[in-house]
Design a binder for these strands. Structure first.
Lengths: 197, 197, 197, 197
DNA sequence: AATGAATGAGCATTCATTCAT
DNA sequence: TATGAATGAATGCTCATTCAT
């Protein structure tokens, strides 16, 4: 087996185990067993347990960035772009609950001090949103008074919370299409009946 | 010192230590030292470490529920009520970063299975939002097609993510007043310039 | 309640709890609860946990010594005296399983170093047997070549092992009368069919 | 070092430490240090502390069973067989005081409920005695009215109590040869001068 | 004398990491 | 590269004992 294969086998196993047990409750030996690899082998590919989490996170987010970017590039309407982002995020999280879980864990569970200096992919991911917002503003499609730095947090936070619930309640009340529409509408037009009033 | 005092001293210490180190990295002896109490004393008031986290969480959220409910009851306009909720949540989190942190931890860090059957206060908290939404809908102030069950998650998630960032970046770009206005506006009227279009 | 009463209430409770859980697994608070007394109160009557065990043991054995001595004094035939000893020991252990248990514990479970300097009652108890043996020898009823110091251990050991089994198997195969007869016979005439041969 | 070696090194160390301090006072780290092994290593070979005690006990008793069985098989006279049993037991306990101690501990110290379903070797050991008795009865060498189930307990109890004393008094009054003869005689012919009388 | 809240030393067990093979 | 036995630091929790009331 080639090195790259083993590396990704471990990443896959780690994603699964971290998602299932949480970072602190996951044991290296769990991951090793899941990856069908010896415990020690893991340390040939990662420096330590936390490094694995970070790698998993970065890799998964990296793929998301790529995938969403590809789709968005084909569009020109910022409304549609935002819609695509929301759609994609929710669909990916629904499809891959482990991924949703790992995002939750990495973002909140581990030592904040260690965290900061490497989360580049995640910044990139959030910045897809703010870039859309800014484009919309320059094209006079989005309100000028929206602060993209805040909007990107609000949108990501909303999506993330919804994904969190999916991971807790196996059967949620609303289906994914409805949820997408709802979230998109809330962010595009707000909850007011007559905004002009 | 009276028993009640010691209990709340421990809660306070636990909140601080959990916030600073995270649940898994917090040692009982850290909390004991912070509370100026012996390690064993903690077990006179709590069954185990996780029980402390849950107690801290429930108590803090309980106070939030009370405080926000009191303020909202004085209002009648659903728009204003939603604004008050957003305002309060953000102000509390800004004021008490430990609280924000503990919410983050409890919501994502610990065993989901154990969690569900006790997080009543948190449900209550979220339901404040959906109640406001429903009231707004019945008064034709909010759009009829908004699903309160999704909106409450979206709003809480947005607020929570913003608070998370405050806890990471000591100095955030935007001040609290601006952030409040932004979030309120995003949720009330959305990001579109001309929703009618 | 008079002091003596409380002392004996604690002794009774301790006997019960030690018997049920063993010395090391018994908690002071268990004994206190059983005696309907505060934990701290126990330390007004005993120096420490081990001191309680020793007190329980000495008191119980002391009573046994007294009881058996009284009965034996009425007899003159060493054969009958030995029989009475065996009878009494077995009957007491059958009647009071806690006592049997505490003997087992004290004799084997606790620190040998601490033990030695106080076990006077137990020596007295064993010496009842050797005294009987010696009397029997001087009256030419028992064999001259029997060493009383060894015989007393053999007899006590046999009785104690039988009592141990009673405490493990709730229903033993043999009833107490039969057991008494058996043990008495084994020690009086041995197992041989034709000792002369 | 091979695995088997390490296992037996730990068994040896545990036997020594349990004997010296008693089960409850023995610390895992004591055993680890005695075995020149890390604390954690012990848990690669045993599930927990109690499991070690049980393993030690079973292994030691197992060896005794084997050794005594081998010797007894060469004999045909039940009198001699009983003598061999007594001889062997006492010699082994004298030689290996730790072993005597561990028998004492395991038999009385630990949870009786757990105990029963695994002490197979010990049952085997006691049944060597009853088998001898039965053989003697069928050959009309031993009295027909002796109950083997009681006799085996009486004999084991006697031997065990004598071994207990050896472990307490470093210098006992009687030497081993004399003790053997005494015990054998007591059980074979009893203490009476004229059994016929 | 009696209480029981408070103490804090003590320890079994876990598990990330190492390293000889 | 790969293994997995070995390591030993780390810690939640217990419980005998104390002492202010």
């Amino acid at each position: 087996m080639k090195t790259a294969d083993k590396h990704s086998k471990i990443i896959r196993a780690a994603t699964k185990v971290f998602a299932k047990k949480g970072f602190f409750n996951a044991r290296i030996s769990d991951i090793a067993k899941e990856a069908k690899v010896a415990d020690g082998t893991i340390y040939l590919y990662f420096n330590n347990k936390y490094d694995m989490l970070l790698s998993v996170f970065e890799e998964k987010i990296g793929k998301l960035v790529e995938q969403i970017t590809t789709q968005i590039e084909k569009e020109d309407d910022p409304r549609r772009m935002l819609e695509i982002f929301i759609e994609n995020h929710l669909r990916e999280m629904k499809k891959n609950k482990n991924l949703a879980e790992v995002i939750q864990i990495e973002l909140r569970q581990t030592n904040k001090i260690i965290k900061d200096y490497r989360n580049n992919k995640f910044s990139e991911y959030l910045n897809i949103i703010s870039t859309i917002i800014k484009k919309g503003q320059s094209e006079k499609v989005f309100r000028q008074d929206i602060l993209p730095g805040i909007a990107k947090r609000a949108i990501f936070g909303a999506l993330d919370e919804i994904a969190r619930i999916w991971n807790i309640n196996i059967d949620s009340e609303y289906d994914i299409d409805e949820t997408e529409k709802q979230v998109t509408r809330i962010f595009l037009v707000g909850v007011l009946e007559n905004p002009q009033a």
